[in-house]
């Protein structure tokens, strides 16, 4: 992580003080890229652009983080998170927090593209449209994972909840985030193009994302309560099924969503 951010830091110096008003490739990579953009390279270029822009402004991550902490604070008093209650609601509290913070990030990430005309620039670029989807989805996922990577230890610290740090639990968090972001990226691309934009995303996203949220809560809650692997196998399977189906569908229909 440290080397990666350093690398991006260097890039930031190279690109200079330019505001990200349009899609720009790093100078060194541009000619090669434009000559023959492979799917993977195009995707990665978008991810890089998003991460570089975010590490410069940090507006999205800081908003998501502060918001997450506030949600946890509110839950603390609303649910009286004493040791007994926490036993059963930790997974629920965490997932609610991530879902809300995720909507915030998804909205912002797509609104920036739309407002600054980036989306049109991206669409004009000679790359596969689904590469744009994967690019946006991966950077959105990165933001969400970064937020989770900060919120989880904080939660563990605040509530002395070391059970969080088991690989299986983190795996469930990852699977859940992937599914949530896949649908979220697609729907946010739709909602930014409507009149009611910011208001619409959670309304569109939550009912469709309910399976992924519930399966994640079930699986991660089970893990926290020392359930056997067989017990969490069903929610885990459903989670994987949801991820696969929705990544595939989002990949297929993204074209229709950004088409002009």
């Amino acid at each position: 992580m440290a080397t990666k951010s350093k690398m991006i830091g260097n890039r930031k110096l190279k690109v200079g003080g330019r505001k990200s008003s349009a899609f720009r490739f790093p100078p060194s990579a541009a000619p090669r890229f434009l000559a023959k953009p492979t799917f993977f390279k195009a995707t990665m270029a978008i991810v890089q652009k998003d991460l570089a822009a975010e590490f410069r402004s940090r507006e999205l991550l800081s908003a998501m983080l502060v918001f997450s902490m506030l949600v946890i604070l509110i839950f603390n008093f609303a649910l009286e998170l004493d040791i007994k209650v926490r036993q059963s609601v930790t997974a629920g509290v965490l997932w609610t927090t991530f879902a809300f913070a995720g909507t915030l990030g998804l909205n912002r990430s797509m609104a920036v593209e739309k407002d600054r005309g980036c989306l049109d620039g991206l669409l004009l670029a000679p790359v596969d449209r689904s590469a744009i989807f994967f690019g946006k989805a991966i950077s959105n996922l990165a933001f969400m994972l970064i937020v989770e990577a900060i919120v989880l230890p904080l939660y563990a610290l605040l509530y002395n909840e070391v059970r969080i740090f088991q690989p299986a639990f983190l795996g469930v968090i990852l699977l859940g985030s992937i599914g949530y972001i896949a649908v979220g990226t697609l729907l946010s691309a739709m909602s930014v193009q409507t009149r009611t934009r910011d208001v619409l995303l959670p309304i569109l996203l939550f009912p469709v994302a309910i399976p992924v949220l519930l399966a994640s809560v079930k699986a991660s809650g089970g893990l926290l309560n020392n359930a056997t692997f067989a017990e969490i196998l069903t929610p885990l399977n459903l989670l994987i099924v949801y991820d696969v189906i929705f990544i595939a569908v989002a990949f297929m229909v993204f074209d229709f969503v950004v088409e002009e």
């Binding site: 739709m190 519930l214 399966a215 459903l238 189906i245 929705f246 229909v253």
Partner: peptide, 16 residues
Amino acid sequence: VYTLLGGLSAPITFMV
């Protein structure tokens, strides 16, 4: 697109 997503997620919601 949205009806398609809805149609796919409803059965999974049921199973979950």
